[in-house]
Amino acid sequence: MDSNSLCCSLDLVAGSGYTLSVEHRAALQTSFAILKKNYKFNRVLFWGKLLGLNGDYFIAQGNEGDEMKNKKTFYSFNCVEWHLLGPATDAMIEAVSKAARGRFMGDPSHVYECRRQGEGGGATKEEDVPVSNTMQVTEEIRLAVTVHQIDEEVSVVPRGAFIKNPQGLVQTNRSFEGLSHTEAQKLDNFFHFTEPKNLKKKSVHEMADLDPSIDFLNPLSDDIPKGCWSLQFECGSNVCVIRSLWWLGLTFFHVPVTPRHGYIYMGDGSKNVDLPFML
């Protein structure tokens, strides 16, 4: 969610039980202004909070030109001092999937270890495994991968909030005035804010209603399994709230007939892999 309207936005998702203390809100307002100036960002966004056993990670993101690409991600323990997270690579994602288990510890230097698969596949005692056959991943790498995965899978924007110009640059649509109440009731009008993958082919009649400058993303309605999103109206039916059932803790909000929208994640960084069996 945009740092310029952070306090108001947090109040709109408070129905999920996600909020910040007055001290943290005040610290974020000050530190975000400094972060934006030092890195010359167009916008600074509060991404959310990852809960750890011994400490929590506050996450922020900044972008320079393109709203979708080349985002810089930062983490902090006190909402004042921010540390840059490196981008997640395919090798990092694979390593985290094999080595990282359980809750976040709250220590970026914490090391997760797992044994590599041997050629024989036989079970051996842990103390007999050579160091060269173990895989190590720091929690800082795991943090970067988790933020990347959540962004890739469940970041949400309303249709028309962003436009793509002929040069391929994605920017905020200044003429966006929000979805109507009727439009906000349909998942078709909410998109994944990430590079589109396998855009579903539309019929001739559907193509006539599409605008290539705003319909360049995957709609939530195409997600599998059906029912992995929960759409509700709260605050006297004045706010549309969408929650992900894959990543419990991801909450998106949009105030119809206004440009106000955003999402926040507050959780332990675990994906609900049992969802297909729960629906």
Rank of each mutant, 00 (worst) to 15 (best):
K186M: 12
P166L: 03
L179Q: 06
C240N: 04
A144N: 02
A208D: 06
W246S: 07
S155P: 08
G178V: 14
V255I: 13
L169C: 12
I141Y: 00
L220W: 01
N238R: 14
F252G: 05
H148C: 08
E206I: 12
L169I: 15
I163F: 07
P219W: 00
F176H: 10
G236C: 13
F216S: 06
G178Y: 05
G168H: 03
P158T: 09
L220T: 07
D215K: 01
V170Q: 00
T172A: 07
P158L: 05
L187I: 14
D151L: 11
V154L: 04
L250S: 10
E140R: 01
E139K: 00
R159G: 08
S237R: 00
D222G: 07
F191E: 09
T172C: 07
N238E: 15
L231A: 13
S244A: 11
V156R: 01
L179V: 15
I214G: 05
A161D: 03
L248M: 07
I141Q: 02
D223E: 08
D222C: 09
K201V: 13
V255D: 03
Q185P: 05
N189P: 11
D188M: 11
L231W: 02
V255M: 13
S180H: 04
V154G: 01
E139W: 01
S203K: 03
S203L: 11
N198C: 09
F162C: 08
D215E: 06
R159F: 10
L187A: 15
M207L: 08
